[in-house]
Design a binder for these strands. Structure first.
Lengths: 197, 197, 197, 197
DNA sequence: CTCTAAGCGAGACGGTACGTCCAGTCTTCTT
DNA sequence: AAGAAGACTGGACGTACCGTCTCGCTTAGAG
């Protein structure tokens, strides 16, 4: 009943993932079909259904395969500069139509399927967020961030607005915008120097 | 060729929107079909396709019909308190499975279809964001917000993290979380009192 | 409820019949629709349904309008020659794609709808058959046809084979074929000259 | 693209043909739909469209399946008697509402679709006509039929009138009528005994 | 070093919904 | 009151994919 992973044909697996990404780029997610993936990959439909639950799972796998497991963030000592760099990179990603399309695709699938959502979160989202968190922890130890700041929230404070604006097309996504967010967030977490200057 | 809105049957229109919302609540968005809406509304499919581009457009219309055109925000003079109230209300909305499901539905459709996205933005999102913006403007005039703060960004700083966490299921959505976001944002926009403490 | 023929718009009537014939020639019977007739005639659909039962009735009316009420047959005294002429004319009609198509159309409608069939029979078929019958009666009086021959059957003996071959595409329809049928039929009805040659 | 007949499911094929005949008997040809056939047969619509061009093709196949490939005609030595028997049988067939309806159905489809017409001709009509032709050939060899008679025409002379009268409802179809036709045709083909009476 | 059970390409299958087309009815406004 | 216009319910159309189910055909590993 359950397939034997040992016997799995690696060549087919790769052909399927490649075909899925190609078709995603060409036709967009809603027009993507398992049948088309199978045809493009030169593979029987059953071979897809044997190893994945549907097109969403295939796409997720394909994307996760493309992403480096661990993402490292630069630490120049200048928190603001480092964050600007990260957010500008994110803006650039969203500006790239290809990457943008795939991210939208993943998001759709994520919305409709809880299990897939969990996988996407753990394999794609978390590593990225976590890298930023690590950088913030370093900043906190360096006294550049208030010790009581909830760093998970700070991370979401950085990415949430970008994601929101991009997903809902609520305005242009520019480097200036990214910088503005960073400035606001830095202001929010900088220890108050007020009491006695 | 293009239908004549004058001749439109208002009764059918309402029946369709009502049926769409009912079915959405009962079966969820992916299982929602134009055929089912037509059947439930006692309407020919063509009548739906004559006036809408598909189920997404119907749902959007149905939801937009339910939303008050203008949303007013309380102004108690206490910005932090007012914002907490708004964000807590948003958290509550996201916690309600019914509302949550419809918002997810809209979001999916929005992602796949640019035109629909524009409509959703203008008719559903913007009014809500704008209400908060108005409150922030009042706060700025009252000297509670730095005069140079880009208020649109601040609004997104409030909602972005919530939306991000909810959509990607990146953690629990609680009142505490909402309060934490508000605290961070208020800290970000409060005029620096540094000069002489 | 029942429409008042007095008030009927003669112009519309004619436009409808003309449009029906045009479309029949252009697109063929199965592709012919009431909607198209109405559009072509610049007429509301209701105006068609008010006066006819459907596209079949319209077509029948259109064709019956075209046909001379009474058809006369030549009588040269030579029965064989006269019949040959009639059957050759019929062959020519069947060879004309346009006439052939309309006859096929009528036949289809006739098959499906008994009432229409009756009308077609009385207004289109009978007059034609009757003309031949009259000629045969004359021949009988002239002693060229056996007095005991059932003339209705003889008429059908003439047209039945042609019709059969044409409708079922059971072979080529040529003048030779027509002549052959005539010869057989004449042989069948010629009084036996046996007694003394 | 084109389906592979090897893989064809014989069970489905039979279920479809059976369902088609059932529904034809129950509802008549015009009310017959591919959808209903599929439902009754417990089959997907695509399975019908994969193997047939439409309901007409299905019905034709169903009927052709029912017909014995080769039809033999009795040969008692008495041509007139044998032909009477055949034509009376045909009259009986036309009198049976069920058989009559299916024949009308086939005819309609035949009229509209040349290819179908060709099939109907070859698989349904020709075998029957040919059987009569064979009998006539025997009669010719026995000297009961003029040697110069075009037998194909004679066959059509027998069936044409019946078909004509039935299809166009141009009069009652009785055994007497059939006998009358046979008498005429026999008269037409009997070698003239005149020469020396 | 065969044999056999698995995965495989292929694609037919029962289904469901699609978006379109037309039938025939109903409604509104015009002539 | 009839007509032009065209929106309405209804229902079949033929298509596209879904996910499952055979087919033979490799192909690997247990005997």
């Amino acid at each position: 009943m359950t397939p034997q992973p040992t016997r799995r044909n690696e060549q087919s697996r790769r052909a399927i993932l490649a075909a899925a990404l190609e078709l995603l780029a060409e036709t967009g997610y809603p027009a993507l079909t398992v049948e088309a993936i199978a045809a493009r990959a030169g593979v029987g439909k059953q071979t897809i259904y044997r190893w994945w639950r549907g097109k969403g799972a295939v796409i997720l796998d394909a994307l996760a395969d493309d992403v480096p497991e661990v993402v490292a963030l630069p630490d120049t000592g200048d928190l603001r500069a480092d964050l600007r760099q990260v957010l500008r990179a994110t803006v650039a990603e969203f500006a790239d139509p290809r990457l943008s399309a795939t991210t939208r695709a993943i998001t759709i699938e994520t919305l409709a399927d809880e299990e897939l959502g969990a996988q996407a979160r753990d394999r794609l989202l978390r590593p990225q967020l976590n890298a930023v968190r690590v950088r913030l922890e370093a900043a906190r130890e360096a006294g550049q961030v208030r010790p009581d700041a909830a760093l998970d929230q700070v991370v979401e404070l950085l990415f949430g607005p970008l994601y929101h604006r991009w997903l809902l097309r609520n305005g242009p996504l520019t480097d200036d915008y990214a910088d503005g967010i960073v400035d606001l967030v830095v202001a929010a977490v900088t220890p108050s120097t007020s009491i006695r200057g």
